[in-house]
Design a protein around this nucleic acid. Structure first.
Lengths: 196, 196, 196, 196
DNA sequence: TATGAATGAGTCTTCATTCAT
DNA sequence: GATGAATGAAGACTCATTCAT
């Protein structure tokens, strides 16, 4: 995505000094952190300071601030995906019991870092339509996970509810009751049971 | 809304010069519009141009940009509240039938202006914690409306779902199916009725 | 100096409401206070707030900010003159004993308000040559007082020393020792002793 | 003073472009000059124009106008110190004769540049308490010089007198008589000798 | 390859001053 | 006579971006 070697080739990456890949990564990491923390606009200067790299590096690796921001959000989305993958494994151990899924969601919403990352992603996407794809990717990931345990239409409704719950947790500073979540998920998944 | 005499002998009080109330209102309106439209930060200059007032007017009526932004969002929230009041009346004519409520929500989500206003409010609140009260006010309004037809706990879950649906509509550019919404609302409200 | 009646005529002055003279005076007083307090530039707004008069009043009574500032400094100078007149009376009770004069100077320098007023006057005069007349007026007043007890040339030297002592007090936050002052004044007035 | 290679192969290091040291110095010099000249507030714009650098340069090298002003005053103080050092050498050739010291002071006060620099420093310190250290540094330097020829207490009194004389020269546009200065210094230094 | 110097555009904000009322 | 609305100029400061090195 940039004309800079990123060391993906092999072992060259991730070393400290003079390691373009690591540098770039540190910059993206810093941008991502700043995005989640909020408190002021994202600027080259702030990113450089946070990443502890010279100012020039931020413009060297990214041709514009927008590109840098996008990379930061992309990292955020990727990490959310990873969290999702973990949840998927945990969910796999249950048999799709709504109670278990509700607990997973509740745990997720109890982790302020996750919620803030999620909100940062959504906030950015709301204000910049060109970033919506990133938000959708995350939404689709949730739907996919839930599709293990519900039909696609139901999975979508559950995901919509989960998004609402995430907003709720963001604004209230704490998640909905585990019980309330369980009730909602049970109700939404209910029809599936009746399908019999 | 502007109680300032404009010297024309009439009580119109909505014209340009020497009508502080109208001036202020025009500025807030412009800020609100820009907030909804997105596409760049809110700045005094943009607001002034949009409201067709000199730059100085924006700082004369609001002691800081934050205050101006808040006024814009407040207007947004107020208008959303009004839309809500209308919906409440429409809902009153039904007997709380989930299908009817679902139709109302679907209609609401089909109105791009509403959805974008809603999203702008949420986006702003996500990025500026000090604005969360505004977002909560709106959320609480929805809960209140729904409380006409469901117990408080259920109303809250419905509102959470509605928020998720709003995000969904924002990111997809169109609302969920009316049928899907109806299914979700019926399910969430269901237990209460079936309880018998 | 302004086309505004100031009530100097008789008893009309100094009443509260709708009393141009008192208004003007309150504005000058406020300007003067702000000048002494420092902490930010002198502005119409600050003066209006301090004097508790509408903003328009400050431009109504003074045709420019410079004029207002000058009026404030003039008040300062006048008050310093008054303090000087008091000192003169106190000095009259002594027989021009340097020790007594030194005590008077020390007392003067111990009064932070006086020192700050003095410094404000000097500071303004340093930065705005057009205000030097005001500073000189004060300097000449001191020379005049001292001329009661010393020949003009000596009085001038004593006044120069007093000015230096005032600066010293301003920068150190406290006056020179009374003893040191006495020593200096005695020495400077010394020739008088030799007169024998 | 600028240790930055300018690529010309020479070591001149005083030219414009790409010579940070010289750039910074030119800005400080400009600020200092403006401070001495008075006539309006110190602003980035004025400094930039005087130093013949783009506006942005003034904010690039100094993180705030206060910092820039302080740097300008610091330069002033440093130059005053240098003048003082010269005077000290000249004084060393005499044997502390008050007449000689008086001549030195008179010469100093006859140099409008010195006097105005001095006054600018004092004026700034009067209006901004945070700059008093700079004024004190200068005062202490004078005391120190005089301590070569008088006991500390006397040196202090002489310095106080010198400050007053500087103010006098500032406001009158010319120094006190050489003879008057000599008389004052002789008197102030006198007692010490007689102490025997 | 990498970087820090450089700058011009643009931000918020303050304000003297004017003027309609 | 008085005043508050109004505004354009100017100020401090921030920054994305460019570019010489």
């Amino acid at each position: 995505m940039a004309a800079v070697p990123d060391g993906t080739g092999q072992t060259t990456a991730t070393r400290g000094r003079r390691d373009p890949g690591a540098r770039r990564q540190a910059i993206v990491r810093a941008a991502s952190d700043l995005l989640v923390e909020g408190g002021g606009d994202l600027t080259h200067r702030r990113v450089a300071e946070r990443a502890d790299v010279p100012l020039g590096a931020t413009t060297y690796y990214f041709s514009s601030l927008d590109e840098l921001r996008e990379a930061g959000l992309e990292l955020l989305a990727t990490e959310l995906d990873e969290a999702l993958a973990e949840m998927r494994q945990e969910a796999a151990e249950s048999s799709g019991d709504p109670e278990v899924l509700a607990s997973l969601l509740h745990d997720y919403l109890s982790d302020q870092n996750q919620v803030r990352a999620d909100a940062a992603l959504y906030g950015a996407a709301i204000q910049r339509p060109e970033l919506r794809a990133l938000a959708l990717r995350w939404f689709d990931g949730v739907v996919e996970l839930l599709s293990d345990w519900a039909d696609p239409a139901t999975a979508q409704l559950l995901a919509v509810f989960a998004d609402g719950a995430c907003l709720h947790a963001t604004f209230h500073g704490q998640p909905l009751d585990r019980a309330a979540i369980a009730r909602a998920m049970t109700a939404l998944m209910g029809p599936a049971k009746d399908e019999r």
